[in-house]
């Protein structure tokens, strides 16, 4: 269900923790699975749970508690915009509105061509770089003014 490379990455996560504490690796393992498959289906969660050797419902709890796990299909690029207060004071809502207008979608929606999903995020711990946006959960973009957004969207193929 996952590539050898992903499984090797999960093994590296497992190696960080005591042998009788494999459960600790579930967050990393779900992240690795999601990175490969873009989002977590129930089947994928069950597979990862069995690989880490925990009950599937325990993995499901984790996958639904932490909000960077996606359990519904997302576009090729998931753009998460922080609108929390520090970002909002520096134009976080402007960024979000610009993206909505430019992509023609609202928060939680995906463009018809499946390329972009727009999400509202909570504080990313980078308020000094406000407004900030995450691409596919892992790549932080700073100072996302409309110009910077235009440039970034052009880069994302």
């Amino acid at each position: 269900m996952l590539s050898q490379e992903s499984l090797a990455q999960i093994d590296r996560e497992l190696a960080k923790y005591p042998a009788d504490q494999r459960r600790s690796a579930i967050m990393g393992a779900l992240r690795i699975a999601q990175t490969e498959k873009r989002y977590l289906t129930n089947e994928l969660i069950e597979f990862v749970a069995s690989y880490v050797r925990i009950p599937p419902v325990a993995a499901y709890e984790v996958a639904t508690f932490y909000n960077m796990y996606d359990r519904k299909p997302v576009g090729k690029y998931k753009l998460t915009v922080c609108t929390n207060l520090p970002c909002a004071l520096s134009g976080g809502y402007t960024t979000a509105d610009y993206l909505k207008q430019k992509l023609g979608i609202g928060f939680g929606e995906t463009t018809a061509d499946g390329k972009f999903t727009l999400a509202e995020g909570e504080c990313m711990g980078a308020c000094g770089y406000a407004p900030v946006m995450l691409v596919n959960n892992h790549s932080m973009c700073n100072h996302m003014t409309p110009d910077a957004i235009d440039k970034k969207l052009a880069e994302l193929e």
């Binding site: 504490q21 494999r22 459960r23 600790s24 690796a25 579930i26 967050m27 779900l30 992240r31 880490v52 925990i54 325990a58 709890e61 984790v62 508690f65 932490y66 909000n67 960077m68 796990y69 909570e122 504080c123």
Partner: peptide, 19 residues
């Protein structure tokens, strides 16, 4: 992976335990 509460130290420990 996206939970403010994990900044609380015992929540962080739970999370570190894979919960």
């Amino acid at each position: 992976y996206g939970a403010y509460i994990c900044g609380e130290e015992t929540a962080l420990l739970e999370s570190l335990e894979g919960k």
